[in-house]
Amino acid sequence: MAHYEYDLRGMICPMPVIRTQDRIAELLDGDALEVLCSDPGALHDIPAWCRIHGHSVTNAVHEPEGLIRIQVLVHKP
């Protein structure tokens, strides 16, 4: 149950979703991934991607300076 961070700032949607998806493919059940992004679209798209793949978003915040942090708890069968 490791915790990872992934910096995707500067990328424009859907790239943050694609990178998050590919990173999660390498992780194990119970791992936590914190993604940092700058495109506000990610606040919508990453949680949507997580919902359809059965992972939980445990936190999603848009900080005042524009930084977006999304925490995902990975669920795998």
Binding site: V17, G41, D45, A48
Partner: peptide, 10 residues
């Protein structure tokens, strides 16, 4: 602002 492909899938 949704991504329609993701939305459709959902």
């Amino acid at each position: 602002k949704r991504n329609n492909a993701l939305w459709v899938a959902e």
